[in-house]
Each structure stands twice: as structure tokens, then as C-alpha cells.
Design a binder for these strands. Structure first.
Length: 215
DNA sequence: CGATTTTGACCGGCGC
DNA sequence: GCGCCGGTCAAAATCG
């Protein structure tokens, strides 16, 4: 298997099952109906193993606007809310753990999630605004690793992006930390509950300026 | 002109 | 203690 040294310590997050679970459970906004069945193929109980993903998320990222939405929603909901700074607290689908983890389970350190996806470009617009702060060539790989920070003030989420050693058409993106804000590319709508009078998020859409919205 | 990228220097952890 | 390595800093360059 391929993977750059450190990634052996990580379990690749299975975006497919994320789409399955989150697309259905979160309800509003993202239509995941027919896509779910195709996402389901190839998923087995071993998604937690130290293996590359048994699928190619980029097929969906490239071609399917609803999946673009799903990815953006994933970034918003899952990374923003589910990944805790200590220990894993990610949604699980009845035995089929949809995520994975991550190093330092017992240590109070920042969570990390790695994605491997096929892409011609390294920079995948996940809805957040990133500022590059470093670039480093790593051992055992001819490809440099790029370091990004979330450019939103007060948010210290980082991500690393590098091309896979054995197949440069694959990009490995590692997210670290929790956004303390929502994605700037998402526009949320609120409604007021007639009973309680409280406001709640009734829906959202990708803002016209987003990369996703251009497809 | 402010924001972002580039890139070499610097720093800390780890193994020997 | 020393060197290697991954990660970050920060000044200069570039971009919009």
C-alpha cells in the first residue's frame, strides 16, 4: 500500500459512509437519495483498517453537485462539530464506524483526519478559506507537503496537503483541529419555531462565490 | 496597499 | 549530545 510514513498512523476517513450517514441524518438541504446506493458499494466492515479507501471520492466530487454539497456539509457538520479535541466522538452507524481515527487517542492532542482522493489539483475548496504558511519536502516522498491554516481570525484549524507518493493523481489532505466558525461559503437560513419561539437552522445553501457553486 | 504565497531559517521531538 | 526530520515562523516577493 502506498502511503507516506505518517499516514500509517492514521485511518483514512471514509467519506462515502460519511455521506451516507450524515446526508440522511442531518436531513435538511442535501439530497442524497440515489447517490446513497452507489456510495454504499464497496463499503465493508473493515473501513477502520489501515488501508486506502476502497473507492474514489473524487468521482463524486468532480461530477455530482449534490456530492459537492455533501462534502461541504461534511466539512461544516462533521469537522466543525463532531471531531473533539480529545478522543474520538464521531457519529457511528450501527457497527459500521464511519470514521476512523487518528493518532493520540489517549493523549490530549488535536484530532486529525486524513482524506485520500483523486484529483488533478491539490487545492480542494472545502468551503473554508486557507492561508498557506509552509511547504516542506518530506522523506520517502518526492512530493512536497503544503501546510495551510484557516485564515478566519481566531480559528487555528490546519490542514496538510500532499500528493501521494506512488500515484500523484491522488491527493492526501489531513485536517487538524476544529473550526470555531461555520464555513464562509455556506449561507444559512433560520426559522422561528412556532411553539418555543426559538430560532433554528432551517436550511442552507452554498453561496454563489463558492467553488462548489460553480459546477 | 492589504492579503497571500514563497522559501530559507529556526525549533522541538525523537532515535541513536 | 548530535543529527535527522517534520512542523512553524517570518521576511521578502507577489498578487489582486
Amino acid at each position: 500500500m502506498a502511503a507516506v510514513g505518517e499516514l500509517h498512523q492514521l485511518h483514512y476517513t471514509d467519506m462515502n459512509s460519511y455521506f451516507l450517514n450524515h446526508g440522511n441524518s442531518s436531513g435538511s438541504g442535501c439530497e442524497s437519495g440515489s447517490a446513497s446506493s452507489s456510495f454504499g458499494t464497496g463499503l465493508t466492515g473493515d473501513v477502520n483498517s489501515d488501508q486506502p479507501l476502497p473507492f474514489d471520492p473524487s468521482e463524486y466530487l468532480r461530477d455530482d453537485l449534490s456530492t459537492h454539497s455533501a462534502f461541504s456539509q461534511f466539512m461544516d457538520n462533521s469537522l466543525f462539530q463532531a471531531v473533539q479535541s480529545n478522543g474520538v466522538n464521531l457519529p457511528v452507524d450501527g457497527g459500521n464506524s464511519c470514521v476512523s481515527k487518528i493518532t493520540g487517542m489517549n493523549k490530549p492532542r488535536t484530532e486529525r483526519i486524513a482524506f485520500r482522493m483523486k484529483s488533478e489539483v491539490e487545492i480542494i475548496d472545502d468551503g473554508f478559506k486557507w492561508r498557506k504558511y509552509g511547504k516542506k519536502s518530506v522523506k520517502n516522498s518526492p512530493n512536497p507537503r503544503n501546510y495551510y491554516k484557516c485564515s478566519t481570525e481566531g480559528c487555528s484549524v490546519k490542514k496538510r496537503v500532499e500528493k501521494e507518493k506512488d500515484d500523484p493523481s491522488y491527493v492526501i489532505t489531513t485536517y487538524e483541529g476544529i473550526h470555531n466558525h461555520v464555513s464562509p461559503s455556506m449561507v444559512y437560513y433560520t426559522s422561528q419555531d412556532a411553539g418555543s419561539g426559538q430560532y433554528y437552522v432551517s436550511g442552507y445553501q452554498i453561496s454563489p462565490g463558492s467553488e462548489f457553486a460553480r459546477c
